[in-house]
Amino acid sequence: MRVLVVYCHPVETSFASAMHQEVLRNLRAAGHEVDDCDLYAEGFNPVMSREERLGYHDVPANRVPLQPYIERLERAEAIVFCFPTWCFGLPAMLKGWFDRLLMPGVAFDISDPANVRPMLRNIKRISAVVTYGRPRWMAWYMGDPPRKIITRYMKRLTAAQARVDYHAHYHMNVATEAQLDRFKARVGAAMAAFR
């Protein structure tokens, strides 16, 4: 399977970085073709410009600024997101990836605004590996936007056909080494069995 891994964290010594490497290692060992999109390493610009916003609905001209990223997304059969939750949301760079890339003519067809149609039918599988600084109950109280974006919004863009799983480690601020090791092992096993 062609798997696009979208990773977002600026620090190479972080737990998120270790999880990113665990994801890559196990997907490759399972025989998948992996496209590793490290947003910080690639210098992805998360800011939608005035010109991009004005041309947002101008299909296909809206694709021009992001064509290489769009091609990677359209080539993928699966996506694995790997990121921390900051302020109960996506990191700004990853939010910018969603804002700029998931647009008309790429993620959905809005030619009939009353009947928007999903276009990411090439994506059959979605997964996420996510960390939170606070406990699960607090993320739930805040509405857990990252979980909803991955498990609801992304799934909707595939016409609800993609299988989705969400691997979350809550309360990183007080996590023990043993807890982190167990989470890493659980994610590694999930990626090794990824289908």
Rank of each mutant, 00 (worst) to 15 (best):
Y153M: 12
W97S: 01
V5A: 06
I150L: 01
L24H: 06
I79K: 00
P135S: 10
Q21W: 15
V59M: 02
K184F: 10
P118Q: 13
E74L: 12
V34F: 04
L102S: 06
H9Q: 05
L180V: 14
A18G: 15
E42P: 12
T158L: 04
K148M: 08
K148W: 00
L39T: 10
V34Q: 02
D36L: 03
Y132E: 10
A107Q: 11
E42T: 14
M103W: 00
A160L: 11
L94S: 01
Y170H: 06
A139L: 05
V6R: 04
I110H: 15
T131I: 13
E22A: 09
F83N: 07
R147S: 03
R63P: 04
M93W: 01
F183L: 05
S111P: 00
E177Q: 14
A189L: 13
A185Q: 14
E74M: 09
V130M: 03
H169Y: 14
C82Q: 13
E12Y: 07
A189Q: 15
F15W: 12
C8R: 01
F88R: 00
V130F: 03
D35C: 14
L120P: 05
R50K: 09
R2A: 13
S111M: 04
W140M: 12
D38I: 12
M172C: 13
A29E: 07
R186L: 10
L24M: 08
F83I: 00
Y166K: 01
T131A: 09
V5K: 00
P113F: 05
F88K: 02
K155I: 07
H32R: 00
G143Y: 08
E71D: 14
F88H: 10
Q161C: 07
T13M: 05
L39W: 11
D58A: 15
L4K: 00
R152C: 11
H167Q: 10
P68M: 07
F15Y: 14
N122I: 06
I123N: 03
R53S: 11
R125A: 05
V47F: 09
L90N: 00
P145D: 07
A193I: 02
D38G: 09
V47Y: 06
I150R: 03
D58T: 13
Y7M: 07
P118G: 06
Y166T: 03
H167T: 06
R163M: 01
P84R: 05
K148V: 05
A92T: 07
M48K: 08
D144C: 08
M103E: 06
P60Y: 03
A128P: 02
R63C: 06
P60L: 13
Y170M: 01
H171R: 12
A190T: 08
A78T: 05
R50W: 13
L4G: 02
V129M: 07
I150A: 03
P135V: 02
N26E: 11
I123D: 01
Y141F: 14
T85P: 06
H9A: 11
R182H: 13
Y7H: 07
Y56A: 11
M142Y: 09
F183P: 12
A29G: 04
R136Y: 07
Q179M: 11
F15Q: 05
I149V: 09
R152Y: 14
V187S: 08
H32Y: 03
P146F: 00
